[in-house]
Amino acid sequence: MSFLTLQNISKRYGQVAAVEDFNLSVEKGEFVSFLGPSGCGKTTTLQMIAGFEEPTTGTIHIDGSDMTHVAPNARDIGIVFQSYALFPHMTVTENVGFGLEMRGINKPERDQRVTETLELVRLAEFADRYPKALSGGQRQRVALARAIVIKPQLLLLDEPLSALDAKIRESMQVELRNIQHTVGVTTILVTHDQAEAMAMSDRIAVMNMGRMAQLGEPFEIYENPGDSFTSNFLGTTNLFPGKVIAVNGDEVSVDCSGTEVRVQGKSQTGAELSVAIRPEKIGLVEPGSGFFDARVRTRIFLGTSWAYQMDSDLGAFNVTLQNTGHLVAGEGEMVGISWQADAVRLLGAG
């Protein structure tokens, strides 16, 4: 049995279902993210694992024991809250030592473990400060130290980096991941930031409208999104709606607004679906030598890359090109559109 198991979890508030039929198994030491837009049920699911909400149906097992109805203080779970939730009337040391004190650990051992953990999060010199005298990033690390010092069975991170500046957030992602590896604690991260989820997780559970849309390793679900929601929530995708006109073994011919596009995949003639391709997988070639031609509507320089918006018979779409140091097609120019055969996916209509 897996370390953390959520079985058929549902949570309803009256008629409204916040979470529907959620199933997940997490292995010991694994880092799993719940990724989705606000209101998708990811935080509610976290609250149920933490014990602040009781599931309407279903069971939660941690390390083999049924935790579904156990009080939050008896679950042995460390949580880092979005607002950090530090105790403002206690110093950093007292904050971090609180969980150990609750476990009846004597002062010498407590002090030693607090010091060790503060060194791990590089805050040793701030031990006697109060939270209000710390920066956002430092508070975040205190919250993390407070959660891991108790050596919890499970670490829950509720949008832990969303209140930080972009620069600090990126360095904290790496730092959090490293600390998680060092401590080896099984971790669940809740986030709406796909870059954060991809950077930090072993696996991502994409959630939409209370249900799990897809579960898998970041690379796997980025490359093979199961539906247009996942495809658009993880990065961006160009979707060309069309109709299947022919199937030849593994190759499907799709009529997209009058242009025939060939895609690897399985379908049947007459099916309505979408051809999906990521902006960074499209290449620009001489007009007439690609699959079809398009006109550059806008071109934006982003330093490492160029962002194009294109107009074509298939509709508007985006292209991202690496900046190679050479100037590329300008606004108003006609270009040919090309891609590798395996870069295109077939997704259900929508």
Binding site: P72, N73, P88
Partner: peptide, 23 residues
């Protein structure tokens, strides 16, 4: 009051009464 501070205390092992008194 920020209620997540209470939730934090609970998750760290404090009973309802200890949470009330200490936080």
């Amino acid at each position: 009051m920020d209620r997540s501070a209470e939730a934090a205390a609970r998750s760290l092992g404090a009973t309802r009464w200890v949470t009330f008194r200490r936080v």
